[in-house]
Amino acid sequence: MDRLTEIELFVRVAELGSVSKAAGRLDISVSAASRYLMALETRLGARLMERGPRHASLTQIGAEYFERCKLVLAELREANSLVSATAVNPSGVLRITSTVSFCMLHIGPLLPEYARRYPNVQVDVEVSNRYFNLLDSDVDLAIRTREYEADSSITIRRLAETRRVLAASPGYLSQNGMPRTPADLLKHRLLLYSYANRPDELHFERDGVETVLPVVGCMKSDEGQVIRAATLQGYGILVQPKYVIYDDIVSGRLVPVLDAWDLPRLTINLAYASRRFVPAKVRTFIDYLVEHFEKMDYQRKWTE
């Protein structure tokens, strides 16, 4: 039995005036309770109570110790209640970061429902297409879209996988024709994302055969929504993760190009500082996001 339980036993004996009654409350034998009290007194080097067959009474120093111990146990119960309440009803500021596109499509629209579930959490969203160093910032949770995640100092939870696809507007394709092979892209205007891994190369794979195509974009941007807007206006063929343009493809605003070829896929990861206990505000948002992604079946939609 640990020292805290010894103290709890001592307080119960003092309150009930009986070792046997206290032992019954704590579901231990009377002989075991007596041994624990002796161990406590031996460790403190003081006689805390006089114990008889049916009654126990505090010594003077035991009475003083009892008053202090009652306060300690009360503080501990209050602390435990606070932690339990926080776990059920988290509070505080939750700082999240992700790209502009992901925040617009998959963070902002979800916040009203999250706020309804957890009204005591304030969500601060830091929108950036560059990745923060979580250990050097105040960010609690980062959503990252990468071909791989190499940072071993943080905890990574996979959220979904997405294809990278080429697409153009129907108007552009009617004027310029539909590319049939990767090499045909060299005759077209390409809109490229400058933060992509090797944006000046497109690595195509089909039936186990890989084709690497060096490309030059007529436009580059560090923001996918800028590229998407220009493509919707018929400016050229973009290369973007499918989660950014999925609704445009479904609605027919954009048409997939060379869809039989695969570009390196991206994994959408949840990244947070490694720790033994994840704060409730972080845990609840992660669970909420995972629940939403599973409900919407995004993994299938973005990889089919």
Rank of each mutant, 00 (worst) to 15 (best):
E6H: 15
L9M: 09
F10V: 00
V11Q: 06
V13R: 04
V13C: 11
G17E: 03
V19K: 01
S20F: 01
A23T: 05
D27F: 11
D27L: 11
A33E: 03
S34P: 02
S34C: 05
M38S: 09
T42K: 15
L48P: 05
G52S: 13
R54N: 14
R54G: 14
H55K: 02
S57R: 15
T59Y: 14
G62P: 09
E64S: 11
E75P: 03
L76P: 01
L76Q: 06
A79L: 13
P90L: 06
G92I: 06
R95E: 14
S98I: 02
S101H: 03
F102S: 05
C103K: 03
H106F: 08
H106Q: 07
H106A: 01
G108V: 14
Y114A: 05
R116I: 00
P119F: 12
D124P: 01
D124Y: 01
V127G: 03
N133L: 09
L134I: 15
S137Q: 05
S137V: 10
D138S: 09
D140S: 12
L141V: 02
A142S: 08
R146W: 07
R146E: 11
D151P: 11
I156Y: 11
R158S: 14
E161V: 08
E161Q: 12
R163F: 04
L166H: 07
A167S: 10
A167H: 07
S169N: 00
P170H: 10
G171A: 14
S174W: 09
G177K: 10
M178A: 08
R180P: 00
A183G: 06
L190H: 09
L192W: 04
Y193P: 01
A196M: 02
A196C: 06
D200F: 12
E201P: 01
F204T: 14
F204W: 12
E210C: 04
T211C: 07
V212C: 00
V226G: 06
I227R: 04
I227V: 12
R228V: 07
A229P: 00
T231D: 07
Y235M: 13
Y235G: 03
Y235R: 13
Y243V: 08
V244I: 14
I245K: 11
I245N: 10
D248M: 02
R253K: 13
L254I: 14
P256W: 10
W261H: 01
R265I: 04
L266S: 04
I268L: 08
R276T: 10
R276V: 11
R283M: 12
F285C: 00
I286D: 03
D287M: 13
V290C: 11
